[in-house]
Amino acid sequence: MVFENTINSLKEKYGGYRKNVAATGSGKGLKKMTLIAWIIIMPYILWNIVFWLYPNIVSIPIALFETSLISAKAVFVGLDNFLDFFKREEFRMIMYNMIRFGIIYIPLSLVISMMLALMLNSVKNVALKSFLVISYFLPNLTAGVAYSVIFQKIFDPHSFLTKAISTITGTNIGWFSDTNIVLIPMAIMIVWKSSGYYALLLLANISSIPDSYHEAALIDGAGSFTRFWKITLPMINPTFVIVVIFAVTTFFGMFAEPLMLTEGGGPMLASYTFKMEIFHQIYDRMAVGYGAAVSLVAGIMSYVLVLLIKKFVGKEV
């Protein structure tokens, strides 16, 4: 597990701290301190039993039931919710969209963010650098609804951009009404939103590589590409893996964009996502069990993708 190191180091810290406290002595009896401490953490514990432990334990079995939001009745259906979902057109379209979206979005966002991070690292001027960092972070703060509203107008049939591209290509482009191209504006929009953020994550790691590594390689006559491939990329591997995971799992989080731009995943499900299907099941059909099943499928799929990325992209340094 990738977290083992983190957990161990945290345990060491906590363990080490315990000894410290015992050595200094707290000044009050342990019994009294225990009472005070439990009073302080009680709200956290109670809240977590209701809103974290209970939902997470119940969520897996609930997917095996056909149960509605408004009735207490639940019929055990085994794996029927899952099997039914796999058979439906929606599932096939979600898979197809995930691949089409990924083909555009993943390379585009990774290349742009890596280039931005490398270029940002070479900027020496402090004022310019902080301006760039701030402007790259801006899109990441914006609500999905807000940037969807803006990009809806940027890709509107009457907009300057659409008219210009229509004139060049000689065809009338309807960005959000053509099943073949609807994911392109969406991918561009999310690249706009997240590339700067990925670049800042990468930058934090790139700037921590000691200069001496590059200097040594320069003396050996390594070109800039070799240095990037042999020094920078391996050194930033942990962050790079995280950025790849973010990019690959973006599709699983898409909700506001299809809802706002294509009226819930249209045309003909060409921009339908997992979140849209979960929302449709639990909001429109009130089928809680079915929604949980879809949600579990999405969760397992993203987890498998994360493991694959860690296996094939991640390196032990």
């Binding site: 983190t6 809103f51 939902p55 969520s59 897996i60 609930i62 979960i278 639990i282 949600s295 999405a298």
Partner: peptide, 19 residues
Amino acid sequence: IFQWIFTGTGVGFIVVFKL
């Protein structure tokens, strides 16, 4: 720490919604 690292199945919000 466990809670912080494993954010859960991601299905929990459906149960909270039903609640």
